[in-house]
Simulated scan of single mutants.
Amino acid sequence: MAPTFYHHSPVPMADPWKELEPGGRKLPWLLGILLLLLAVGLTGPLIFFAVKANREACADVLQAERASRNSTHQLQRQLTWAWEDLQAAETRALTCNQTAVGLENSLALERAGGQQLQAQLEELRGEVADLTQKLQEASAEVERLRREQWAPGASAGNSGSPGPGPWMAATLLLLLLGLPALWT
C-alpha cells in the first residue's frame, strides 16, 4: 500500500460555544442567516397563497365585468328600442296633428259651404213660393178662362176659339214637373 499523506489545518482548541454567547461575534451572523432562511422559506408559501387569492379575486372581477357588460348591452338594446318607439310615436303624433288640422280646415270649409247652401236654399224657397203663387194665379186664370169658354150662353164666336192654347198647358206642365226638383 501506498503511504497517504493527509494534511489538516490546525484546529484551535478553544471552546466553540463561547463565540455563540451574546457578546460573541458569530451569534448575530447566525441569527441573520436563520432569519434569512426563515424569510426565504416563508416567501414561497406567501407567494403561492397570494397568487391563489389574486387568481380567485381576478376571476370574480372578470365574472362581475362580464355580468356588467351583459347588463350594459341589454340596457343599450332596451334604450334603442325605447328610442325607436319614441320616434315612431312622435311620427304618429305629427301625422295625427296634421290630419286634425286638415279635418278642421275641411270642417270650416264644409260649414262655410253649408252656410252658403243654407242661403241658396232660402233663396230657392223664396223662388218656389213666388212660383207657387204664380202657378196659383195661372191656375185661377185657366179656370176663369175655362168657365168663360164653357159657360152657358157664351157667344157663338167664342165657341170656335181653341181655348187657353197649347203654350199655357206646356207652361203648367213644366211648372208642375219642376216643383219637386226645386225642393231637393
Results as ranks from 00 to 15, higher is better:
6 Y>S: 13
7 H>F: 05
8 H>E: 06
8 H>I: 09
9 S>V: 13
12 P>F: 08
15 D>V: 01
15 D>S: 02
16 P>D: 01
23 G>M: 12
24 G>Q: 00
27 L>P: 00
29 W>V: 14
29 W>E: 09
31 L>N: 02
33 I>Q: 02
35 L>G: 11
36 L>Q: 02
40 V>Q: 02
41 G>H: 00
44 G>H: 04
44 G>R: 08
44 G>Q: 08
46 L>I: 10
46 L>M: 12
49 F>A: 10
49 F>M: 07
49 F>L: 06
50 A>Q: 06
52 K>A: 12
54 N>W: 01
56 E>Y: 00
57 A>K: 04
58 C>R: 14
58 C>F: 06
60 D>G: 14
63 Q>V: 12
65 E>P: 06
66 R>C: 09
66 R>G: 09
66 R>D: 04
67 A>M: 05
67 A>D: 06
67 A>N: 06
69 R>C: 07
69 R>G: 10
70 N>Q: 13
71 S>A: 14
73 H>M: 11
73 H>L: 13
75 L>T: 08
76 Q>L: 10
79 L>N: 06
80 T>D: 09
83 W>I: 09
85 D>M: 02
89 A>F: 01
90 E>T: 07
91 T>S: 14
92 R>A: 08
93 A>N: 08
96 C>E: 14
98 Q>C: 05
100 A>F: 03
102 G>L: 03
106 S>I: 14
108 A>P: 03
110 E>R: 11
112 A>T: 05
118 Q>S: 09
119 A>F: 01
119 A>P: 03
120 Q>P: 06
123 E>I: 05
123 E>H: 03
125 R>L: 05
125 R>D: 06
126 G>E: 03
126 G>A: 04
126 G>P: 02
127 E>C: 12
129 A>V: 05
130 D>W: 04
130 D>G: 15
133 Q>K: 15
135 L>M: 14
135 L>I: 12
136 Q>H: 12
136 Q>P: 09
141 E>V: 10
142 V>W: 03
144 R>I: 09
144 R>N: 11
145 L>T: 10
145 L>I: 04
145 L>P: 04
148 E>H: 07
149 Q>F: 04
150 W>E: 04
150 W>R: 12
151 A>V: 08
151 A>H: 03
152 P>R: 06
154 A>Y: 00
156 A>H: 10
157 G>C: 13
157 G>I: 12
158 N>M: 15
159 S>D: 05
162 P>D: 11
163 G>P: 00
163 G>W: 00
163 G>T: 03
165 G>A: 04
165 G>Q: 01
166 P>I: 14
170 A>L: 09
174 L>H: 10
175 L>C: 15
176 L>A: 15
178 G>S: 07
179 L>E: 10
179 L>W: 02
182 L>N: 10
182 L>V: 07
183 W>F: 09
183 W>S: 13
